[in-house]
Computed example of a mutant assay.
Amino acid sequence: MKSEPVAGVRPEVKRRAEQGSQQLQGEVQKLELENLLRTKFPFDAIEPVPKGEFGGDVLHRVVGAGGQSGGTILWEFNRTKNWSDAWLAKLRDDQRTAKAEIAVIVSQSLPKDVETFEMVEGVWVTHPRAALPVAMIFRLSLLEVALARQSTEGQQTKTEMVYQYLTGPRFRQRVEAIVEAFSTMQEDLDKERKAIMKQWAKREEQIERVMGATVGMYGDLQGIAGKPLQEIEGLSLQALDAPVVNNRSAAE
């Protein structure tokens, strides 16, 4: 007897297969771009980011023909249907950790109003078809900056060195990290303040309800018992209406 397929199994299997296929395609694309960079720039050190160190996929250390270091590019490859702005903040953090001058996201899906490549919030975003030209531009720029820096080496005063640091990417990255952390702390503080104010208002309302119920019950009993019911301090009309005074004023 031939068993019927269980409803819901085939769509689930198909979804998992498609998800696995997308992940595989992403890995293939990453390896293709990685190999393309190695082939195009044989003098550069192009290495996968070790697992567990920081984010990103490839660390591209630019090396000139004379062996001089030009700088570092951190590449991240994404193959998803939808763009996520969260990638930007994460790669900026990874860029600081890697001490890279440039961070690039290569993605099939791009932010709104970005057609091929653009800088978005301090991170370069590019479509895979423009990845190689973008790499060539960034590499040339880093080498030119490194060459200019070497030509003035030994002639710099401390003031000039401080100026270069303040106007360079490292200082900007550190300030951005501080600002982002401060903004997050401020948002958390505002949320906590609103939550506490809400709790205070709720407790104040509960206390007023308890006091109202207690005074009402005392009034009912006083109406039934009449004069024999002893007065309770704090529940009399004078006590409830009297302004609160501190001990020093009462003593005086």
Results as ranks from 00 to 15, higher is better:
K2S: 14
E4K: 03
P5H: 08
R10K: 15
R10I: 07
E12D: 09
V13E: 13
R15L: 10
R16A: 06
G20I: 09
Q25A: 13
E27V: 01
V28N: 08
K30L: 13
L31M: 05
L33I: 15
N35G: 09
L36I: 07
L36R: 14
F41Q: 10
P42V: 07
V49Q: 03
P50Y: 07
F54Q: 02
F54H: 08
L59M: 05
L59E: 04
R61W: 08
V62L: 10
V62R: 03
V63P: 00
V63S: 09
A65W: 03
S69W: 07
W75I: 06
F77Q: 01
N78G: 00
T80D: 12
K81L: 10
S84D: 11
A86P: 02
W87G: 04
T97L: 12
K99H: 10
I105F: 04
S107E: 09
Q108S: 15
E115K: 15
M119I: 15
T126A: 15
P128K: 01
L132P: 00
P133S: 00
V134R: 01
I137S: 02
R139A: 00
R139G: 01
L140N: 15
A146F: 07
E153C: 05
E153F: 06
G154Q: 03
T159C: 03
V162I: 07
L166T: 12
G168N: 04
R170Q: 14
A181S: 06
D188Y: 03
L189C: 02
E192H: 09
E192T: 13
R193T: 09
A195V: 07
Q199W: 00
W200V: 12
R203C: 06
E205K: 15
E208Q: 12
E208L: 06
T214V: 13
G216M: 10
Q222W: 09
Q222S: 14
L237T: 11
Q238F: 08
A242K: 14
V244Y: 05
N247L: 11
